[in-house]
């Protein structure tokens, strides 16, 4: 049996006195698409950021692909990872942000080749070739030379997805990828994500797109107030929520 891609065991995270994650248990298998839903402030985004080493957890265990996040186990001791090691781990995980966060001073292609060239030390031609292939894959082959401000929100987000894929990650994290988009632009982004899922990419998606969760997700997790309230297949959770809080939330968004 292979190790799960993400395994969280009683993960706690607090900012000062505010406890954002209060004992999260989670398991994402390789190739699985997990959708995270829940009201704002429920800790979904924080959980994603913890998985990608952008935040340190305060207690519990969190591992990605069988390796602890932020620590290396030697004997019965945990050694905190050095900056370089953390960077190497982050490079293996792709992340897509709500606000795209493309580098505005670089072209679309420039955004795609930056990390492969600087972090992976790839040659320009290799990086550019993969970059162009990825732009084609997200339907933007003709926009390689465009700067982000010359692209629509939907196009920017597709470039951002391609930028994350350029590092050939083993896991993709999406933090509300369509929340900042005009409604008519959401479809193109979801299409790209659908294609990724079909290709077998392991994905954790924080989303408010229930239709996407139902259609593409293998599992659905409802979080509220820093805990996982309920999880299961999207069909089960959406059709027959077992918890009162899930029912209340779904009644508001569906």
């Amino acid at each position: 049996m292979t190790a799960p891609m993400v395994l969280a065991d009683q993960v706690h995270k607090r900012y000062g006195r505010l406890e954002v994650l209060r004992g999260i248990d989670l398991r994402v298998e390789a190739g699985e698409v997990m959708c995270l839903i829940g009201p704002s402030g429920s800790g979904k985004s924080t959980l994603l950021r913890c998985i990608n080493h952008l935040e340190k957890i305060d207690s519990g265990r969190l591992s990605v692909d069988g390796e602890l996040v932020g620590y290396r186990q030697r004997g019965d001791r945990l050694h905190e990872l050095r900056d370089r090691e953390v960077c190497a781990k982050r490079a293996e995980i792709g992340m897509v942000f709500q606000r795209f966060n493309l580098f505005p001073h670089m072209t679309a292609l420039g955004n795609l080749i930056e990390a492969p060239m600087r972090v992976r030390r790839e040659g320009r031609s290799v990086a550019e070739e993969r970059g162009r292939r990825l732009l084609e894959r997200v339907g933007l082959a003709d926009r390689a030379g465009s700067f982000p401000n010359q692209l629509s929100g939907g196009q920017q987000q597709r470039v951002a997805i391609a930028r994350a894929l350029a590092m050939q990650p083993k896991l993709m994290l999406f933090d509300e990828p369509t929340s900042a988009l005009d409604p008519e632009l959401v479809g193109d982004v979801l299409d790209v994500m659908r294609g990724l899922a079909a290709d077998g990419m392991t994905m954790v998606v924080v989303t408010h797109e229930m239709a996407f969760a139902r259609e593409v997700g293998d599992s659905l997790v409802f979080m509220d107030d820093g805990v996982v309230v309920e999880s299961g297949t999207p069909r089960e959770v959406l059709a027959r929520p077992r918890h009162e809080r899930t029912r209340e939330f779904l009644a508001k968004v569906l």
Binding site: N52, A88, R90, A115
Partner: peptide, 8 residues
Amino acid sequence: AAQALGMS
């Protein structure tokens, strides 16, 4: 975003 890409 740059951190998430593994940049130092």
